[in-house]
Structure formats: structure tokens, C-alpha cells
Design a protein around this nucleic acid. Sequence first.
DNA 1: ATTGTTATTGAACACTGTTGAATTATATGG
DNA 2: CCATATAATTCAACAGTGTTCAATAACAAT
Lengths: 203, 203
Amino acid sequence: MARRSEHTTEELKEIAIRAGFEMMDEKGYQGFSARGVAAKMGYTVGTIYHLFGDLDTFILNVNARTLDEWYEDEVSRAPKKAEQLVRYYAHSYLAYARAHYNRWSALFEHRMQDDAPVPKWYAPKMMRMFDLIEGAVMPHVGDDPKAAARLAKLMWASVHGISTLSLQGKLDQTGAGAAERMIDDLIALAVGGKKVFVGFDKR
Amino acid sequence: MARRSEHTTEELKEIAIRAGFEMMDEKGYQGFSARGVAAKMGYTVGTIYHLFGDLDTFILNVNARTLDEWYEDEVSRAPKKAEQLVRYYAHSYLAYARAHYNRWSALFEHRMQDDAPVPKWYAPKMMRMFDLIEGAVMPHVGDDPKAAARLAKLMWASVHGISTLSLQGKLDQTGAGAAERMIDDLIALAVGGKKVFVGFDKR
DNA sequence: ATTGTTATTGAACACTGTTGAATTATATGG
DNA sequence: CCATATAATTCAACAGTGTTCAATAACAAT
């Protein structure tokens, strides 16, 4: 068969990404397959390859959708008060990872085949998250931009590690809210300004 | 064909794990396959299923080998001086991940199918790493065991996050040693006892 | 020797990703 | 208005994957 011309190429890409996004949400990265997505949108595998060239590119587009949705979420719900921003972003990261585990973890489970480099349009979608945290951290480092960039990445990476290991059950933590408490500890250390763990209070 | 009886079952398991370990090192988690390992050891796929029941169990055994090797490595090379222990373990984590990226990342890329729980013999091999750090951290928290456990996990998770994102190139960091500097910053915050990022020195 | 046990294989099944040739609907040009 | 070119879509095929299981053959026990 051939051209249905029910949709333009751009519309089809959108449909494919949408279907892929939903499938990622439902089945997770492991259950994600080109044939599955194609079936979901009422087409065949070949169409996806025709639209995106290769599977890596398609998955990157699906993950980019997640990053866009996530970024939008962070920005729109950020509080106005500057003092609470750091705490908000840190906990918001964990909250999003928890609430949308499948599509969040897909961001980090995906690997380019043959260790091919990530295309240039994708990387910024990950990196711009730093800008948010940089801004939030700024008042805590005496408005030093270099210090802010450095601390922002440190906090981002640390929160990421806490979230990853915690949600994978690799932290041997008991009770709900353990990961949240770890993040609070981190914030206290990085930005709290007082010694937290020497003679610390048993909360 | 049938029983060659060149090796006992235990010997065969050892051979399989060894072959799997090497294959993981060479090809990475993505390039790891049951047939590949079987071929490498001069047998067929069925033998691996006969030995381990299912592929998850086999991979866990291979990863357990990594954890054993890693743990041994950490313990044997740890310095005597207590003051340097925290710094040693933190940097040692990153160093191992860098030097043996394939088998290290396999520890975290592997997911149980159907989200089946990890068998009870496996989890401790991951958890005992905490004990090392707990001990190293202890003098820094006034010998409070609860505080030590809490800080140890925080540092472990944070260093894990730094290593993961850094080695995956998701941190937008320029220049060699950037990840190492992040770890130094973390140590300074957690255990250094002074404010690091307010008026911090541009090293 | 005969029987039983079990290690090992091989073939089959249902899936992957990936490629390319065959179709056919539409756009273009005469 | 018909002929031709373009390109969207499908289908079939290939080489892999994990997984299961009957058939085989080597050994142990009686």
C-alpha cells in the first residue's frame, strides 16, 4: 500500500512521538519497541524508520518530549520566594522521578548504539535544567556565577544519585520519606550554613 | 549429545560466570548475550539455563562477581590513616567506575524482568559497601552510629550520581578532572567543616 | 547387563531491530 | 486528461535475542 495522506509528515511525527511517549509510560524502557509503537498508532514499523531514520533518533525524540514536559512542570510550579527555590527544585526532582518513573528512568536507561554521540539538538534539553538550579543557588553563594554553576551541578548530580538508587531499592532504606530526608540533609550541608552531622538532631 | 563430565556442576558455574564476567567487560551490558557467553565457554545456551535457571539469575551472578572484586579492591587498598578514609572511598568509587566502566555500569543497567525482587543473597553484596563508608565517616560525626549510617548513604548516593552523570557525559563539564573536583566539593561540604561555596576560592 | 539419572544439545517459538524491494496514492508536467 | 515521477506505506526477509523442551548420550547404580 502507499501514501494515505491523511496526515502531513510533521503530523505523523507528532503522532508517533505521542504514541511512543505513552508506551514508554505504560511499559517502561524495557517494554518499548518500534513495532509496538507502530501498532499503537495504526501503522507499521517501516513508517517509524521512514520518519526518524533510526530507532535511536526516535527514542531521543520521545525522551525529549519527557524533558520538555518536565522542564515545563518545574518552571510553572516553582515558588516565587527565592529562599525556598533550592529546596523546591531538589524535592521536585525526586517527586517527578517517583510519579513518572518509567519515562524518567528511560532518560538514563537509553544508550546510543556504538556509543554514537548524542545529536546537538538534544543535549541542551538536559543542560537547561542546570540554569534553573543555578539561579536558585545564586543567592547562597554570594552571587558568584562560577560558584553557582559548580554548586548547581553538584546538587543536581547528588539528587540524581539519591533518586536513582532510592527508587531502585539499592539504598537499604526503611520507611517512607527516607529519600526525602536524604535530600533535606544534602540541602542542609550545601546551603544550610550549619554543621548538620556533628551532634545532629534525631528527627 | 550428553554429559561430558569434564567438569562438575560447580566448576561449570564458575566457568560460566568467568566467561560472562569477561564478556561483560568487553562488550558491556548491551553486548552481553546468553548465546555469546555459551559460545565463549564452548557450550550451548541450554547449558546456561540448566546451570542458573533463568538469565536474570545468571546476570546477578556475574554482577556479584563484580561486586566481590570491587569490594576486595576497596578494602585491600584502603589507607591506614583514618582522616583520609572518606576522601579515599569517594575517589576510589569514581576511579573504579572509570577504569571498569562496562562491568560497573552493568550493576545498574540490569533490571529484573517483571520487576521481580532481587534474591536475598544478592542485596548484601551491594549493602556492605555502606559499612566501609560508615566506618570512614564515623569520626566526623562524633561517633554517632545513626548519623554515620545516614551520612554514609548520602555520600554514597551523591558520589554515585556524580559518577553516573559524569561518565555518561550528561554534566556538560569541560576539562579532565571535573568529576574529581565535584567529589572534592562534596567532601568539603559534608565533612570539611567550613563553608565552601560562599566566597569560595577559584581553584 | 539393565535400568535410571542427568548433562548437553538442537530445534522450535515468539520476539527484537533493520533493511530494501514492491506497491500505490498523490503531485507534477505535458 | 492522461502519463510520469515522487514518495508514503507495507511486506517480507535476515540476523539476532530469550526461552522452552524433547531427544540424545554419557555416566552411576543396581
